[in-house]
Amino acid sequence: MLWDWSYAFEILPILAQASLVTIQATLLGFVLALVLGLVFALLRMAKSPWIALPVATLVEFIRSTPLLIQIFFLYFVFPEFGVSLDAFTAGVIALGLHYGTYCAEVYRAGLDNVPRGQWEASTALNLSPFHTFRDIIIPQAIPPVVPALGNYFVALFKETPLLSAIAVLELMQQAKILGSTTFRYIEPITLVGLFFLLFSLVASALIRMVERRLNRIGAR
């Protein structure tokens, strides 16, 4: 018998424990991504090319290189400068930074879709740039891109197993430890896979629901 049910049930609580770390890393990483993404997006829109161009280059750079290397980079390089990050923090920052660049693109699309007339009307009303952004532009730019952001939330979640490479005790790392101590890999890794599948399917369904609701609001 390849699959051992009693073993699977035995390790389930251990994996459930580890999944909490996965979920924490996902939530913290995504909050960071949302904030950094907005910062990137706004800086890229800066009038001065001395700000816009380096930021654009940095965003392209982070987007085009592997997350795994970025995780290593943060984890191993910072101690050289005397800043020691624990593995979890380094991992969350790397996730947030990497997906921040994706979110930046999404925000940018959202901002581009706000009609020019909204800017002109704000100028005509003599609103400051800050208030124009906060009260007029952002509230119109964000709702339509919520589904796209949601997709990146799921994508970020699916990349958390990379944190196992720097020994963060999340799901994948726990599964590997279980596998190496009992030499039974099939149950832990399959269970981890099922956990991700379940979460992704539920999340995708939720995103589609939000999308439909937004469409209905938009149609009104």
Binding site: K158, E159, T160, P161, L162, S164, M172, A175, K176, G179, Y185, I186, I189, T190, V192, G193, F196, L197, S200, L201, S204
Partner: peptide, 16 residues
């Protein structure tokens, strides 16, 4: 394959 992680898939094929 879209619903699970690339790393999980890699490990699954490698270990299982």
């Amino acid at each position: 394959f879209r619903g699970t992680s690339a790393l999980v898939q890699l490990f699954w094929l490698f270990f299982v």
